[in-house]
């Protein structure tokens, strides 16, 4: 479906603080790239640059060979799952999941179909009319995941999506995640500082340890 490429990506805050230095890599359709490293090593910075939330100082981000480096985050057709889930607190789960589709003014029937399909897959059917405040941590995490999956984006970006869950739940969700993303034919970039997580989730052996 898509290929994500980074070419000589650089992010410089000051001459002595260069979290991302000449990073070049390619993530193909069914690849699950894990960026592993301690906090502050530039993995999140890389992810934010791919998403377009921060501009890289130099270098390019390419999707299917098109340069998206200067595009707005919303126009890049990428979905992102945040560590804090970042659900909209005033909207119920259904509205959270459907938000991006409604903005694109997709036909209401299709939106409903897609939301149903995703929520069935993630076991969210019963929870769709609840607000994030009425959901447990694990449930919120699944809503955040559903919000990304429903878009059927060109690229998935996940920023430590499991680190807010307790240990037991984390293992369970990790297995689920692996299954879900194996079924998606889209590049996945996954940021974590947890080695076990990185090793379990990788599909092809593409695990960048960032210094």
């Amino acid at each position: 479906m898509a290929i994500l490429e980074l070419k000589n990506l650089n992010k410089t805050y000051s001459p002595t603080s260069i979290p991302v230095k000449d990073l070049s890599l390619t993530v193909r359709d069914d690849e699950f790239l894990t960026l592993l490293g301690p906090s502050g090593c530039g993995k999140s910075t890389t992810l934010r640059a791919i998403a377009g939330l921060d501009q890289p100082t130099r270098g390019q981000v390419l999707v299917d060979g098109h340069d998206v480096t200067r595009m707005r985050p919303g126009d890049r057709n990428m979905a992102m799952v945040f560590q804090s889930y970042a659900l909209y607190p005033h909207m119920n789960a259904e509205a959270n999941i459907a938000a991006s589709l409604r903005l694109k003014q997709i036909d209401a029937g299709e939106i409903m179909g897609r939301v149903r399909a995703v929520s069935a897959k993630l076991g969210l059917d019963e929870l769709l009319d609840r607000k994030p405040g009425q959901l447990s941590g694990g449930q919120r995490q699944r809503v955040a995941l559903a919000r990304a999956l429903v878009r059927q984006p060109a690229v998935f970006l996940l920023d430590e999506p499991l680190s807010n869950l307790d240990a037991l739940l984390r293992e369970q969700v990790r297995a689920e995640l692996k299954q879900i993303f194996e079924a998606q034919a889209a590049p996945v970039v996954y940021v974590t500082h947890d080695q076990t997580e990185a090793m379990t989730l990788r599909r092809r052996w593409r695990c960048y340890a960032m210094a």
Partner: peptide
């Protein structure tokens, strides 16, 4: 994060 999520969802 909330604003970042909104930007990625395509809100201007």
């Amino acid at each position: 994060d909330l604003e970042d999520a909104a930007k990625i969802d395509g809100y201007n």
